[in-house]
């Protein structure tokens, strides 16, 4: 009686038409010790699946590192970015900035400075000449004493 039912279940099983509950019946039957002789050929198939389910790995799987560590690397990049930004910024701001008007004024200042320099140079030349005149006056005094 039992084996007739099992045969029917087996037939459905090989067509892919059994439910999980029915498959459990089959497994239980074939893992028991009273399998009908003519069905014994299926025993190792079900035993095989049973063994396959018991396989497991004894290796310790590492979970990815703690979140804080990833945060740290995130901070590194932020810090690096700040340093670069600071460098570029300070360089940029250390450059003097003039408006058009200021530039013109600066150019005018440079020009007038040049003119003053020229003037003072010539004035110095004139002053040099004066020493000759002074020398002349001294010798003249010596002679007419």
């Amino acid at each position: 009686m039992e084996s007739v039912k099992i045969e029917k279940l087996l037939e459905a099983y090989f067509e892919g038409n059994t439910s999980l509950a029915e498959e459990k019946l089959l497994r239980d039957y074939f893992n028991s010790n009273n399998v009908a002789e003519h069905l014994e050929q299926y025993t190792s198939m079900f035993a095989g699946f049973q063994v396959a389910k018991e396989e497991h790995s004894s290796r310790e799987f590492n979970l990815p590192e703690r979140k804080s560590k990833t945060n740290k690397t995130w901070w590194y990049s932020v810090a690096a970015m700040l340093v670069v930004a600071f460098g570029v910024g300070s360089f940029y701001f250390s450059q003097p900035h003039y408006t058009q008007e200021e530039k013109e004024a600066l150019a005018a200042f440079e020009k007038s400075k040049k003119a003053m320099m020229l003037l003072s140079e010539n004035l110095n030349k004139g002053a040099e000449q004066i020493t000759f005149v002074e020398q002349f006056a001294i010798t003249k005094d010596k002679i007419f004493e």
Binding site: T43, S44, M45, A47, G48, F49, Q50, V51, A52
Partner: peptide, 15 residues
Amino acid sequence: NIEANDGVELVFQIM
């Protein structure tokens, strides 16, 4: 499983 060992082995090989 020792009793079914040969058969089980075979199932794995076929799979």
